[in-house]
C-alpha cells in the first residue's frame, strides 16, 4: 500500500483501535468490518427515509445507532458525521439535517471505497 493511501485510510478507519476492540483477532476484525459494511448500507437507507419523512425521533435513534456501530468498527469519521446528525435531530434543527446527511453519505462512500483496499488482513478479504 502506498504511503498516501495509508494516510487516507487512517482517517477512515483507526486500525489500531479496531484491533484493540477485537482483542487482536484479525479474522474477527475482518468479519466486523464486513458486517459493518453490510448493515451500514441498510442503516443509511433507513436514516435517509426517516429524514425524508421528517421523523426527528427516528432520525435521532438511527443516527445514534450508526454512531455506536461506527465507533465500535473504529471508523472515527463516520462516527463524527453520525453524531452531528443525531445532535441536530435531538435539537430539532431540521434545516441542518440534509447537509449533514450529505456529509455522512460522502464519508460512507470514502469508507466503502477504502476498506476493500486494505490488504493487511488477507483472511478477511478472502
Amino acid at each position: 500500500m502506498k504511503q498516501e493511501d495509508q494516510a487516507q485510510a487512517a482517517t477512515v478507519l483507526d486500525i489500531e483501535d479496531l484491533m484493540t476492540r477485537c482483542l487482536g483477532n484479525i479474522e474477527f476484525a475482518g468479519r466486523v468490518l464486513a458486517k459493518f459494511q453490510e448493515s451500514g448500507d441498510e442503516h443509511l437507507a433507513e436514516l435517509e427515509q426517516a429524514v425524508a419523512s421528517q421523523d426527528t425521533e427516528a432520525v435521532a435513534q438511527l443516527a445514534h445507532r450508526l454512531k455506536g456501530a461506527s465507533a465500535n468498527a473504529a471508523a472515527p469519521g463516520l462516527c463524527a458525521r453520525a453524531a452531528e446528525i443525531e445532535s441536530a435531530a435531538r435539537q430539532r434543527s431540521l434545516r441542518e439535517i440534509p447537509a449533514r446527511l450529505e456529509n455522512l453519505r460522502h464519508e460512507w462512500s470514502r469508507f466503502a471505497a477504502e476498506v476493500p483496499r486494505l490488504d493487511w488482513f488477507p483472511e478477511a478479504t478472502a
Binding site: 477485537c22 466486523v32 458486517k35 448493515s39 445507532r65 456501530a69
Partner: peptide, 17 residues
C-alpha cells in the same frame, strides 16, 4: 444491544473473557 456490529464486538469480548 440493538446494533449488530456493536453486539458482535460485545459478544466477542465477553466470550474472550
Amino acid at each position: 444491544e440493538d446494533d449488530c456490529v456493536s453486539a458482535e464486538i460485545l459478544e466477542n469480548s465477553l466470550k474472550h473473557f
